[in-house]
Design a binder for these strands. Structure first.
Lengths: 146, 146
DNA sequence: GGTTATTAGTTGCATATACAATATAATTCA
DNA sequence: TGAATTATATTGTATATGCAACTAATAACC
């Protein structure tokens, strides 16, 4: 007989995805630690670099992040001088962009990112990486691209 | 020419995995919200149910969770009366187990879990789910099973 | 033009996560 | 047996995450 507990324990997608997320996040965070940077922060910096002028709502659409989360996450990036908020005509908007230091930091982080990416690729395998890309692609919102 | 920023943006495993983690976690959390339960909490309750008497270190090995994280995560579960700490000979140990209410909650959560699991399966696809299982299996530590 | 609706972000609150440092207890070993 | 080591978990600090409620400003509408 298979109990509900056994079923959830052995098949739950959230359990596995969250576990894998912890492990992989730690791979990148370990590699990036000498730079005083976390992979969650590098993500935001890279998206910002791609956008040039980054509007919070757009970044949140791209990353499927709650706006309140981004609002707080950019604070330490600002405090470290990696990005800056740019005033605009629309007084509600709080777009931000990379600073020169932020750009330099991304370039400095590339070797560490490559090493973590290598480890993550090894863990997931070619097929795992492909499936991940496929799922992420499914989640792209129309018109929200970089 | 492909810049470093473009490469990271388009290929980073952590970016995609973390994004997918947010989306899938929200699927389950939305489904479980009427029960006042989050999927992270359900995970811990289910592991506890499987173990009977759950030792923090063992749970952390199973879930690849930092012990300090678990130490704090069980607090609200205790406060809600879903699990209880059981004293033991070894005064350092703080093993815990489900309460009757905790068991009932899991059973009550099954339909919501099933619906979220259905949605997550649809998002990841058969192959995606299989790849996820494969990666999670790779992370099992020897002797740490349930 | 003034009221209403919409849009853009922030703040309050709760939980999740991990590293570093700590506390405490059990074990080892000289 | 007493000191050093090891094991188990918690606390301090910082970041990540999202919901609900809020503020402020723009747009829409009558």
């Amino acid at each position: 007989m298979t109990t509900n507990v056994e079923t959830i324990s052995k098949t739950c997608i959230a359990v596995r995805l969250r576990l894998l997320n912890r492990v992989v996040t730690n791979l990148y965070d370990d590699a990036l630690r000498p730079l005083g940077l976390k992979v969650s922060q590098l993500n935001i910096l890279v998206v910002t670099a791609r956008l040039g002028l980054a509007r919070p709502a757009k970044v949140c659409d791209l990353l499927h992040l709650d706006t309140s989360t981004l609002s707080r996450n950019i604070k330490p990036l600002q405090a470290n001088g990696w990005l800056e908020v740019v005033p605009e005509e629309d007084a509600r908007a709080q777009p931000f962009r990379l600073t020169a230091q932020g750009k330099q930091l991304i370039e400095k982080a590339v070797p560490a990112w490559e090493e973590a990416q290598r480890q993550a690729t090894e863990l997931l395998g070619r097929d795992g990486v492909a499936q991940l890309a496929k799922a992420a692609k499914k989640l792209r919102k129309p018109g929200v691209e970089i």
